[in-house]
Design a protein around this nucleic acid. Structure first.
Lengths: 166, 166
DNA sequence: CTTGGAAAGTCAACAAGACTGACATAAAAT
DNA sequence: ATTTTATGTCAGTCTTGTTGACTTTCCAAG
């Protein structure tokens, strides 16, 4: 009822109005975040699902289909359609697993890596600009809040990949 | 190649790897951000599109269809399907515009407001927890980066609603 | 060694929600 | 009177999610 009740301490300053603004900021920012890759993808008759698959295959070459659909949070049937077109178009290579031959290991081809670079460069450019505009301290806060917003298991997954691979 | 090259200044610290982590943080956090409302919506055979419509009608009662589809960034055909079900189900009321009788002004019914509260409370709860975990300074940075990530016109739209309505 | 799950992946069919295009109606503007 | 604007609707397409049913491969218990 009293909006100014938290104005002194500034630690418990979470009015519903401020939370609502945060919610809308997420919504609008996410739209900006996906806008540039979306434009590139639509030229090629691909969608966001293709982008995500290519992104994570690039990040972890050789990961299995199961690992990929787990990180993407979709069903294997849904992923499979996307994956099939990427393989048909020669962007992704699917090799039979070395140890377990039921598994398929996924890799980007040179052509796939090229698309990945194009997409992620567009996305990074926007992120870079936003980071520079907001400044280093803001970036740290940005990451902290986003991490706190993730589901538990997802956050663990995310944090476990925080280190750069050699 | 050398990761520590930016460790001194900490102003131009934007390695591709750090940008990639930011991109993934957005992806995973957005999933968390929508997870709670999605669960509620699926019980009711609604989707995210319904949530967004209800959210913005609640924020700006009496806004026109045109204004709504502009803020949502979808076509009228797409919005219309969602809006029709919300009106049929008695969550949204569409009144002929007072000044311009071509326009329809949109309002939540009590039932609609109830769903809005349920959805936004779930979302606010997560946001509140994330904010408290990260702290006030992080929250400020979070908002700064998100604002910088929006498209120009969207940001203007967003900022113009920054003030609390009476 | 065989057989009977279990696990990984694929195929088929369906649904939500986005899109475009065409058209209808009513009201406002010229 | 004519044109423009705001809204709604119908039809059809696309992406990307879903479930269900199937094949191939592995492993473990008898």
């Amino acid at each position: 009822m009293n909006e100014t009740s938290a104005s002194g301490e500034n630690l418990l300053f979470l009015t519903d109005e401020q939370l609502r603004k945060g919610i809308e900021a997420m919504f609008f920012a996410y739209r900006g975040f996906t806008a540039d890759p979306d434009r590139i993808l639509s030229e090629l008759a691909y969608g966001r699902a293709h982008h995500r698959a290519v992104h994570f295959i690039n990040r972890s070459p050789g990961l299995t289909v199961n690992a990929l659909l787990s990180v993407l949070g979709v069903t294997k049937q849904s992923l499979n359609r996307v994956l099939r077109t990427l393989i048909e178009d020669g962007l992704v290579e699917s090799r039979v697993g070395r140890k377990d031959r039921r598994e398929r290991q996924l890799f980007l081809t040179e052509k796939g890596a090229e698309l990945e670079r194009r997409l992620s460069e567009a996305q990074r450019a926007r992120m870079r600009t936003a980071y520079r505009t907001a400044g280093p301290q803001a970036v740290a806060g940005f990451r902290q809040v986003l991490e706190a917003m993730m589901d538990e298991q997802i956050r663990a997954q995310y944090l476990s990949l925080k280190e750069v691979r050699s």
